[in-house]
Design a binder for these strands. Structure first.
Length: 469
RNA sequence: GUCCCCAUCGUCUAGAGGCCUAGGACACUACCCUUUCACGGUAGCGACGAGGGUUCGAAUCCCUCUGGGGACGCCA
């Protein structure tokens, strides 16, 4: 019988939840969902110096925004200390762990000597057989790593990976201040939480053999491991605060849709033939760990933006409306008495983010401060006056018939009468009402603005044209 | 330094020995569509890091080199 899949996302709350962490979480979540398994959130906060409450909140908020809901947790390692102490006591009793009294200075010296000999720095095990405590020294507990042989595991994305045991030293599992350490806690938790698949960044490949040895010492079978390639900044260098390592919540602020971000992230390291766009459901049903790439991937902001636009285009305007409203408030506009859904529909295929959408929609909410100089020079000169006047008259009689179709018909007939292309009529109107030469189609634009605003703005433009003649 | 991982267009990727004249996507350049901008369409630009093997045949398998990344902490 096959075990139920159990995956976990185990961030440490020492910084923000950035794009790399989000991708790791996504793959873990996808794998669990794909196999009807359980996705667990575990906060690895044993570094009490650097872990913060704020960082925990950012992780929780980020996961919620992305919609990566956990079935269990969040668990906190700092709440599991009694359990860790219990396991350590057991390892000590069975001789699989021992006290080490080496001082920091002694260890530094050891490392320096090894480096000088061109060796890999590692603890040489000098306290392995010590039986007597050193007075006045609070010892650490080290794990007695197996000597000789090798540790091999089959990584789902990388294939077989082998480490020689001699590369692994006796790592500290309990600090002298009583705090257990990372590799140890991970091993205990992965076992206790019955994790079946450890999906994490490939910077953890080096930790894997240590954790496997720890697991075996506890009498547990190691889980399946899948190490994901790193995500690099747009410039191909490691993601750091300097190079585009934004918190996922900053993508929310910047106007990205969670499903678009997830889609983009999924395509970083994973693919399904030539398909670029996926719904969440498609990702869940198609995701497979053995299709995951081995090499690191650089962020491509343009493609992210494109992906976002594609998802916006596939969304109903009314579902985008609340998000657009939030963006507008961020720009100091309180949207009221307008059809935000219609605005979103008119703009979703011409803007790449919700923020861009909000910026492009500003003229719907208040009369533009002025006209874009080039557009005004070209379309609002003295010669535009007569046409604008006629358009105004034509539109003014529409009254309750103020719909995009009616506006369109009115302008078309006017263009016919004046022997002008629709473009020659539309462009001056566009500049008159929006202040620039770019907007959604003129009929939709006028329909959304409504008769009052349109006529008022036309009057203003007509006055301006007259003043120039 | 030692160990581990990685290597296809600028970037994300397809590619499981012949289907490869190496496909798709973003970006870029033309053109088409068009009331602007977009969207959409068509075309173009553009890559198997190098060298050795194995094989009738290698982007694909093996080795070496080179390049990149990661780890080596009483961080996670």
């Amino acid at each position: 019988m096959r075990l139920t899949v159990r995956t976990r996302f185990a961030p440490s709350p020492t910084g923000m939840l950035h794009i790399g962490g989000a991708r790791t979480a996504l793959f873990s979540w996808l794998y669990a969902r794909r196999h009807g398994g359980t996705f667990i959130l575990r906060i690895e906060d044993t570094d009490r110096e650097r872990s913060t409450e704020a960082a925990i909140q950012v992780i929780l908020d980020g996961m919620r925004w992305l919609g990566l809901d956990a079935d269990e947790g969040p668990y906190f390692q700092t709440q599991r200390y009694p359990r860790y102490r219990e396991v350590i006591a057991g390892l000590l009793a069975s001789g699989q762990a021992y006290h080490c009294y080496c001082s920091k200075a002694e260890l530094d010296e050891m490392r320096a000597a090894q480096l000088a000999r061109h060796e890999k720095p590692r603890y040489d095990g000098r306290c392995r057989n010590r039986s007597a405590p050193v007075p006045g020294v609070e010892p650490v507990v080290r794990f007695r790593n197996p000597v000789g042989g090798e540790v091999e595991f089959h990584d789902v994305v990388h294939g077989p990976i082998v480490f020689q045991s001699q590369e692994l030293d006796d790592l500290i599992i309990l600090r002298s201040d009583g705090n257990p350490t990372y590799n140890f806690c991970v091993a205990v938790d992965d076992r206790d939480m019955r994790i079946t698949h450890v999906i994490r960044g490939d910077d953890h490949i080096n930790n894997t053999p240590r954790q496997i040895n720890l697991l075996r010492a506890m009498g547990a079978e190691p889980p399946v491991y899948a190490h994901l390639p790193m995500i690099l900044g747009a410039d191909g260098t490691k993601l750091s605060k300097r190079h585009g390592a934004l918190s996922v919540l900053e993508y929310q602020t910047a106007g990205y849709l969670p499903r678009a971000l997830l889609n983009y992230l999924a395509r970083l390291g994973w693919s399904h033939g030539d398909q670029e766009l996926f719904t969440l459901e498609e990702m869940v049903s198609l995701f497979a760990l053995d299709q995951v790439n081995k090499s690191a991937a650089a962020l491509n902001p343009d493609k992210l933006a494109w992906t976002n636009q594609q998802h916006m285009m596939r969304s109903a305007g009314r579902s985008l409306a609340p998000l657009l409203a939030t963006q507008l408030r961020g720009l100091g506009v309180e949207p009221a008495g307008v059809d935000l859904g219609a605005i979103a529909d008119s703009l979703k295929e011409r803007t790449r983010t919700l923020r861009e959408m909000a910026e492009a929609s500003l003229f719907f909410f208040h009369e533009p401060d002025g006209y874009e100089p080039k557009a005004a020079a070209k379309f609002l000169g003295p010669e535009a006056g007569p046409m604008l006047r006629q358009a105004r008259a034509e539109l003014a009689v529409l009254g309750p018939q103020w719909t995009a179709a009616q506006v369109h018909a009115a302008l078309e007939s006017l263009a016919g009468r004046l022997q002008l292309s629709l473009g020659k009529v539309a462009q001056p109107l566009r500049v008159a009402v929006s202040g620039s030469g770019v907007s959604p189609p003129i009929d939709t634009t006028l329909a959304i603005l409504g008769p009052d605003a349109v006529l008022r703005r036309l009057d203003r433009a007509i006055a301006r044209a007259a003043a120039r003649s």
